[in-house]
Design a protein around this nucleic acid. Structure first.
Lengths: 397, 397
DNA sequence: TTGAAAGCGCTAACAT
DNA sequence: ATGTTAGCGCTTTCAA
């Protein structure tokens, strides 16, 4: 190993490097620790300590180093640091689809995904948390088997330290793959099949109850609901919550039309509902997009909203405000939830080093709980943070 | 410099590393080149050559190495590679806003940005190009002065090799900053102020002409237009193109109402237009969102579309199809344009190494031209790729 | 408290 | 055609 002849060659080495890079006028590239150290008249190690905020550094020297950093315009080289710390200081934001429909064009996937205002909000929340910590997410789509493998490979080789996963479908295999590989990850919403991964979610039942009570309070008596897909928890829970709340008020039966969380499916569902129950006077749609579709159909059938039929949506996404009429809806604090995802992931990556104070970032009534489901043994770290929804009253109900 | 005692200490070094890592049963972490080399019975350099697809390697050895790679499950460590190649193998996808309105909440910015279907398409196109090359974009927002500085710093320190920039406003300072720092970047759309940076764009005038001719051909004679913001080239050019085309057909005057590319502004503009020109029978809106707003207002005023008033939009975004009625519009191949941006950037980063065959990725009639504008001397590399629009006829006109 | 030195895993001369 | 070797810029023992 190259070890001897050090104290003798160190100075010449530094000198020659200095000569060849600075004095000889060669374009020197960005300043390195070495440069800062030379300017400050200390060793690389000391500069490193100051830069990384490690104690045990003489205040005077600390000041000198800081000045040298400013003077040279030094910024740590991420690759070099990553190489030794084994941290990429990068996280992946994964938008994940289900199945292995490899035929699907991913450009279409992207457009479809982002046509739902939901993902923009998630992105905003994630960036809102990450950016102050000077981190930026790597955006990945995982709609095919191949793409999923790429995501796992990317994480496994350490290009990113962990993943924030937003699934668009039930039965997404990615969470399971991530868990199996023991890769740090946090999900938006509880996965259908039990997977030992932390997640953030909304108290969907409570939200649906809010909608039911509001409809009841404004005098509606012939209620119906356009549910989300019933194979995903959010769809199920919103339906169950609505039903239960009505039952508690003596309404034992509620017509249900299942939708797919898209505007089109909302229109179709509303059409069916109207055909079978022309006398209905209130509708709860499991998301705003479907509520918007429902409004369209209702108006087309000559119903006034909310006079003839009151409509309540869910999410309080951007379409809620532009809907005609503006939608009364149940607010899901997506941005806060996304930020919390990022926080949980960072906590997991740093292995219990996180700021405990960072929780409940504006999330009203959010609760932190350890998931008590069947574990794989190492589920001590599996966490679920549930946020509370809120009713936003506008014109539609 | 540490140079002597090499051939003597090399073997023990390798041996001890081997002992401490594999034989002693210590968790060895991901396999390294070293591991593969040992398994294949060759040197690290040879493995590196095979992995990087460099010729001059004996086919037999090549096979052995490949087998060893498969056996060990080796994946190159990106940090180590970056450190020596000085390439991050990462590019930034920047959504940029203007001004220094630091008060603006970025979560709001994110939602607003993604509420326009345009950005989803850009994202899809970029990922579509990058992913087959196993690259993934880092998503950054640059809506405040601070955020812009972060973007520049991120690139300067080499965390990303270049930036794809999509500006939301005129007068965005980011392109200028990037150019000044000589950082590789490609813009979507020509910047208002001349900046020496490559960009992709659409032949807006041609698109507007298509709209004008279609409207004329279907018999409309009292035309009006809802323009985009006139301080951005796209807004200007679409208006100019429309005007010129009409002029060529003898229509010297066209009522114009300026909008801001949002649905709301489209509604307002349409309302004004209708008030001043109740007899109009055809409208060209400079984008689909505004066309949608216009349709709403027209219907509210009892006009049938297209019988009473024909409407043509621009973009062929996702709203075009869901509009009531479905919008006849001018298609902008955003995904292809975004992919081309990525290709141009890669070409620029690799300094003339790019695949020349990759151009015109489905872009019909796209043209590649060297920008002949006032240069800063080094504009030999500044390129502009202009795509041709296409008319998509649906129900609204 | 500070510095010297050993690498992290990889690529790229430079020798064979 | 293959191997040897010197780092890339950084963190981190280990000495002093």
């Amino acid at each position: 190993m190259p070890a001897e002849g050090a104290s003798e060659s160190a100075l010449p080495l530094v000198y020659s490097a200095f000569m060849s890079r600075k004095a000889q006028g060669v374009a020197a590239g960005p300043p390195t620790l070495e440069d800062v150290a030379r300017v400050a008249g200390v060793s690389r190690a000391t500069v490193s300590r100051v830069v990384n905020g490690i104690r045990n550094v003489d205040p005077a020297i600390q000041e000198a180093v800081r000045a040298a950093v400013a003077q040279t315009g030094y910024t740590p080289n991420r690759a070099a640091r990553s190489l030794v710390t084994r941290r990429a200081e990068t996280i992946a934001l994964v938008v994940s689809g289900a199945g292995d429909d490899s035929v699907e064009e991913q450009a279409a996937f992207a457009s479809r995904v982002f046509s739902d205002p939901f993902f923009g909000r998630v992105t905003g929340g994630v960036i809102g948390y990450l950016r102050p910590r000077s981190m930026h997410p790597v955006l990945m789509f995982a709609e095919t088997a191949e793409a999923r493998d790429q995501v796992v490979a990317y994480l496994r080789q350490g290009s990113a330290d962990g993943a924030l996963v937003v699934s668009t479908h039930a039965g997404d295999p990615l969470p399971g793959m991530l868990a199996a590989a023991a890769l740090p990850a946090v999900l938006f919403a509880r996965p259908v099949d039990q997977v030992p991964i932390s997640y953030v979610d909304l108290a969907h039942r409570d939200g649906a109850r809010l909608a039911a009570e509001h409809l009841l309070a404004r005098g509606c008596r012939r209620l119906a609901t356009i549910s989300g897909p019933l194979d995903v928890p959010a769809g199920q829970d919103r339906l169950t919550g609505f039903r239960d709340a009505l039952a508690r008020h003596g309404h034992g039966y509620v017509p249900v039309a299942e939708g797919g969380f898209t505007r089109d499916s909302g229109e179709e569902a509303m059409t069916r509902l109207l055909a079978e129950h022309p006398g209905l006077d209130g509708v709860f749609a499991a998301n705003d997009l479907m509520a918007q579709g429902a409004c369209r159909v209702l108006r087309a059938h000559g119903r006034r909203i909310p006079e003839d039929v009151a409509v309540v949506g869910f999410d309080d996404s951007s379409v809620a405000a532009v809907c005609d009429p503006p939608l009364t809806t149940v607010r899901q604090p997506v941005e806060d939830m996304a930020a919390e995802m990022a926080r949980l992931l960072q906590e997991r990556i740093e292995g219990r080093g996180g700021d405990t104070t960072g929780g409940d970032t504006g999330g009203i009534g959010s609760a932190d709980q350890t998931d008590g489901t069947a574990g794989t043994g190492d589920d001590a770290e599996i966490r679920a943070v549930i946020f509370e929804p809120e009713l936003v009253v506008r014109a539609s109900a």
